[in-house]
Design a binder for these strands. Structure first.
Lengths: 223, 223
DNA sequence: GTCTATAAGGAGATAGAC
DNA sequence: GTCTATCTCCTTATAGAC
């Protein structure tokens, strides 16, 4: 556990698996492809991890753990500064989306890691979804109460709707940055985390402060 | 093409495939599982569709075509009413997200269809992504110019960033409605399209109108 | 810990009778 | 158009030598 050796077989597998999962998806990335990139033997995966499912979980946990820890630490600092008062909305949102978007810069892997991270949300499969709930359940709860403290007048149902929108906007940006570059004709550069965070926080904060939708009907329907 | 027979083998396959893809994902849903639900023979899939890839495309096109047509028709009506003036932002956004969210109500399948529709955005695979660009390219371009006309003072780079956020929030809501019910403790009901649309439009319109993010401190500048 | 060899099964696709 | 039977390939996983 305390080993640091870089040529470690266990780590070689983890790195190659991460890249393959990000590039091809969990199903399409076979263990055989992973070992060919890692330069290790097929049996080594089962020796070190036991199964493909366990490998997926290990790949995921290595990145998600630090991100969620950073989120909670930043939220702690915000709450400490605010005392009993209202929390600053932009800072709370930045604490939620910033660490995830900055993951691209922290890792030498760059955008590859981001795709993996964002993709898991959309992927089906009981095992993955259980893992997600386990990894993110606490973070979601903490940020739900923090956002409530940042926008106290917002009813609770609207709060949860809007949290879902935040998660969706963040996830899509993380998962599929290339599409933004494409549709903008190269005008936007999603690989720059600072610009991404600034744009995202401004948009989401305004959304959180939006006046409540009227119960009224929608626009006239064409038939 | 003009056939209406409901027990049609071709349609039975399409229905079963849609459900299986939505439930399990494109990779995990095997043709053998699809035929067992449809009650048809394995060879029938290849006779009617040729390959699994072509089947995926057929499943997708059946739903996306009408949705995109509805989007463009509503946008046409909005632009006709507005003449040369500024477009009403809420209505443009509603034209974009409404038809997709209402898909759940129009189809007897309900939420199943929604999951399929939203999931495809996040899925990897060259073939799927090419198909997406082909199916949605025109719609994205039309709505980009429409949104620009609705928020004329917004710089073009911010416009594309925010469009990406819109697509993400909408897609996540469509793809994974159950998570909202879960994290809200049953307070929010994502299966009610009208509430979902109202909440989503209010949030996104406010986001589109957000002041531009500053580079470092509070100094929102306009172009 | 790492290797070879192989097990055991599921996948998509097809040929040819009816 | 529909069926049975089968082909070929690739997957995860394991047993056992070194």
């Amino acid at each position: 556990m305390g080993k640091l050796s870089e040529g470690d077989t266990k780590t070689l597998i983890l790195d190659a698996a991460e890249q393959a999962f990000a590039e091809l998806g969990f199903d399409a990335a076979s263990l055989r492809r992973i070992i060919s990139v890692a330069g290790v033997n097929l049996a080594a995966i089962h020796y070190h991890y036991g199964s493909k499912e366990a490998l997926i979980e290990a790949v995921f946990a290595r990145r998600v753990g630090p991100v969620n820890q950073a989120r909670l630490e930043r939220l702690d600092a915000i709450e400490r500064r605010a005392g009993q008062g209202v929390l600053p909305l932009e800072e709370v949102i930045e604490a939620l989306v910033g660490p995830a978007l900055r993951l691209a810069r922290d890792s030498a892997k760059g955008p590859v890691v981001m795709r993996l991270y964002g993709r898991t949300v959309a992927e089906p499969g009981e095992h993955l979804q259980k893992m997600l709930s386990h990894q993110f359940g606490g973070v979601v709860k903490r940020f739900a109460t923090a956002l409530q403290r940042a926008v106290p007048e917002l009813p609770r149902d609207a709060l949860y709707w809007r949290m879902q929108f935040i998660i969706g906007a963040m996830g899509h940006l993380i998962c599929d940055p290339q599409r933004l570059k494409l549709i903008s004709g190269g005008l936007c550069d999603p690989s720059d985390p600072n610009t991404a965070i600034r744009q995202l926080v401004a948009f989401l904060a305004a959304g959180m402060r939006a006046p409540l939708p009227s119960k009224r009907k929608e626009a006239p329907r064409k038939r």
